[in-house]
């Protein structure tokens, strides 16, 4: 389960209240970030996120993966979670911008 969307390597899973998460620390960060983003959208207005900002939010993940691969530092669950979290929040806010555009387009076509 979830193996299609996460490598689920045992050493990269988070343990919360003694139970291991089904996805890795980075993916947990992304989903938790999306959850936080959705809570934000519930109480505040939709922020229009520009593509550049969205791509900028992806860079910490990219750099973290590259730095680990070139052995600059060892894999850290905390860094993985945080980089995923930043991307997750931005992803949800950006997605709400996209869905907003979708409904605007539908409204114009009616």
């Amino acid at each position: 389960m979830f193996g299609f969307v996460c490598h689920q390597q045992d050493d990269k899973l988070l343990t919360i209240f003694g139970i291991k998460t089904m996805v890795c620390a980075r993916c947990t960060g992304i989903y938790f970030g999306m959850f936080v983003g959705s809570i934000y959208i519930l109480f505040f207005n939709v922020i229009k996120i520009k593509i550049k900002i969205f791509i900028f939010a992806l860079l910490p993940i990219l750099f973290d993966v590259i730095f680990i691969e070139i052995n600059l530092y060892a894999y850290s669950k905390l860094i993985a979670f945080l980089t995923g979290f930043i991307f997750g929040v931005m992803l949800f806010l950006f997605l709400s911008t996209v869905i907003n555009s979708f409904y605007l387009e539908r409204g114009r076509n009616k």
Binding site: M1, F2, F4, V5, F94, L95, T97, V98, S101
Partner: peptide, 26 residues
């Protein structure tokens, strides 16, 4: 695996499709 992959594939593919449309239109 097939059922699990299809559920995840549909959700994540849909997300990619929407993002891609927004990128290309922008």
């Amino acid at each position: 695996m097939l059922v699990s992959n299809l559920i995840a594939g549909i959700l994540f593919g849909l997300l990619g499709g929407l993002l891609g449309t927004y990128f290309m239109n922008a």
